[in-house]
């Protein structure tokens, strides 16, 4: 199966300023890929390279088996930029007509369906739209031609939770029909919700590409244990335990890897209560962000 996206040794510098450095990334057709990183890490640079809006300083960009400068390839891409302007004097209906025409659509039925589901007033000129509604227009124009590849830059940042829900449903439907989805975010919860695989970019360098499951297994889980007496001294040296904090009879710690050794230790030390805070992916990502991932 050909990759929907293949970046080979792609670098981008703006003069001397770093965009991204030596990116190698392959995204299989049909995947939902979350592209995570703090602001300024190079997410938008990567995405704009995928659309041929900017050209790499080195390396090769391949999208849908071709080059994104080819209109036939771009016809199959839906793009929602992170920061975009709209034609203030056009209404949504007119934008659909314009872009639909450029994309050679025979029918705008799906676009009108999208507008209805996103609760967009298609007759209003864009200069009268709120930030949330403008984002809906962005989403609509990205989805309206039912593209094979969706490239979305921080797609839900301006949407309220209810609309986000609708948007995720639309993405799920596109995915069910075989679309590949590449989206960036600096919010973990958004990625966790829909992505199969994630890439983490930091200071222009791809730090990690993993399935979410693999990441979870490596993530720190936080537990709170109450003991009958003082917290035993040996707890901190149990394999997998880190960041032990003691407050009277209560110990709080993170666990990495298998839980077994920790549980055996608790049995020996007469724990009276155990409370789990669950997987803290956020912490894992923060450690990647800070560049000290183990």
């Amino acid at each position: 199966m050909t990759a929907a996206i293949a970046l080979r040794g792609v670098s981008k510098f703006y003069g001397k300023q770093r965009g991204v450095v030596d990116l190698d990334l392959e995204i299989v057709t049909g995947d939902v890929f979350g592209y995570l990183g703090p602001n300024g890490a190079g997410k938008t640079t990567t995405i704009r390279l995928l659309l041929d809006l900017i050209r790499p300083s080195g390396g090769a960009v391949e999208v849908l088996g071709g080059h994104p400068s080819d209109p036939a390839i771009r016809r199959r891409i839906g793009y929602l930029p992170g920061d975009f302007g709209l034609y203030e004097n056009l209404s949504t209906a007119e934008l659909v007509e314009y872009f639909g025409g450029l994309r050679g659509l025979d029918s705008f039925d799906y676009a009108w369906q999208l507008a209805e589901r996103l609760e967009l007033d298609t007759a209003r000129p864009m200069k009268d739209l709120s930030k949330g509604n403008r984002q809906k227009v962005g989403a609509l124009q990205a989805l309206m031609h039912q593209p094979d590849l969706l490239v979305l830059d921080e797609p839900t940042s301006a949407l309220d939770p209810l609309v986000q829900q609708t948007f995720y449903e639309l993405l799920a439907e596109a995915h069910d029909q075989g679309a590949t989805i590449f989206f960036s975010s600096h919010v973990l919860s958004e990625v966790e919700r829909v992505a199969d695989r994630v890439g983490i970019i930091r200071e222009g360098v791809l730090a990690e590409v993993e399935t979410l499951e693999a990441l979870r297994s490596r993530a720190v889980r936080r537990y709170e244990v109450t003991f009958a007496g003082p917290v035993p001294a040996g707890l901190g040296s149990t394999p997998g335990v880190r960041d032990l904090e003691v407050d009277g009879n209560v110990a709080t710690c993170g666990i990495v890897g298998p839980l077994g050794p920790f549980l055996s230790a608790l049995a020996t030390f007469e724990a009276v209560d155990l409370y789990g805070h669950g997987v803290d992916l956020e912490e894992l990502f923060l450690s990647f962000y800070q560049g000290d991932a183990s």
Binding site: A72, R74, F99, Q141
Partner: peptide, 15 residues
């Protein structure tokens, strides 16, 4: 300047 170029160029039109 108005930020519409990104959307426009994502359409299948050569530069």
């Amino acid at each position: 300047e108005s930020g519409t170029m990104d959307l426009l160029l994502a359409n299948p039109v050569t530069r």
